[in-house]
Amino acid sequence: MSEAKAVSAGRPETGLLSKFARSDLSRPTTLISGILLLLIAASATFAPLIAPTDPYDLATVSVLDGRLAPGEEMLDGTIAWLGTDGAGRDVLSAIIFGLRTSLTVAISSALIALVVGLVVGLTAAFYGGRIDAFLMRIVDIQLSFPAILVALVLLALLGKGVDKVIIALAIVQWALYARTVRAAAMVERRKEYFEAAICLELSNARIIWKHLLPNSVSSLIVLATLQTAHSISIEATLSFLGVGVPITEPSLGSLISNGFDYILSGAYWITFFPGVMLLATVAAINILGDQLRAVVNPRLSR
C-alpha cells in the first residue's frame, strides 16, 4: 500500500509502451505473470463459453452432486476437475464465473476512482492555495484510515449488492489517485512554460488538458494496476465477511466464504481452489505493476 503511494512524480521521456517493451521483459516471472493474466482475463470475459457447466442454472445443478472430490464424475457425466461444493455446483465453473464478478467490481471501481481522483487532483494542482490545501486535507484524513475499514463501514451503511461494493471501493480509492495526480501535476506547474501558458491566457481547460494531464498519465497507469490488485483483494475480503456481493452473484471471495463451512469436514477444495485463483490473479497483477513502475521510474524500483 505504502509503495503505491510512493509512486508520485514519474515522467516517461518517451512512450510508456516502448519503454516497457525495451525493459527486461525476458524475466521469466514477468512473462509468466503476463500470460497468466491474459488467460485469466480471457476466461472471465468468455465465462459462459469456457466453463464446463453453468453453476447458476438451477435446472442442471443437483444436490446429489454435492461435495464431490476433485476429479470425480457428476451425475450428467461431466468430470468435476476441482470437485463440487455443498450444493453440487462444479467448483471450476464457479471459479470462472466468480472471476468475472471479481474483475468487474475491481475494474469498474478503479475506473470510477481514477476519474474522481483525476478531477480532484488536477483541480487542486491547478488552483493551488486554499482549494489545494482543503482538498489535500480531506485526502490525508481519508488515507489515514485503512481501506478495508472504510469499505466495511460504507457497506454497513449502503447494504449489499454489486453496485454498492463498486461504490464503496471507488470511495476507498479516489484519494490515492487524487494525491498521485496532484503530485505529478505539481511538478509540471513549477516549470516555466506553465507560467507562460497562464500569461498567454489560454483557457483553464486547455492548460489542464494539454499540460497537467499528460504528465500524470504514467504514474496513474502504474497506480491503477496495483490498485486493481488491491481492490480485488478487498472485495474478496468483504464478500468473505458477508458484507460484499450477494450470494446470487458470487465472487471469488464469496466462493471461499461458502467453502469455509465445509473446511472441518475435510472438503478443502471448495475454499482452496478459489483462493489459489485469487492469489494467482493478485500476484500476477502485482508483479506486472512492479515491473511497470520500474519502467516508469527506475529510481523507485527495488
Binding site: T237, I263, G275, L279, N286
Partner: peptide, 26 residues
C-alpha cells in the same frame, strides 16, 4: 525472503487464515 514478502502482500490474509486452519487444525 523477498519473493515471500511479495507473495505475503499479494495473498489475501483471510484465505491464508483458512489454509492455516486446514493444515494445523484439520
Amino acid at each position: 525472503i523477498m519473493g515471500g514478502s511479495v507473495l505475503g502482500i499479494s495473498v489475501p490474509t483471510f484465505w491464508l487464515g483458512l489454509m492455516m486452519i486446514i493444515v494445523f487444525s484439520v
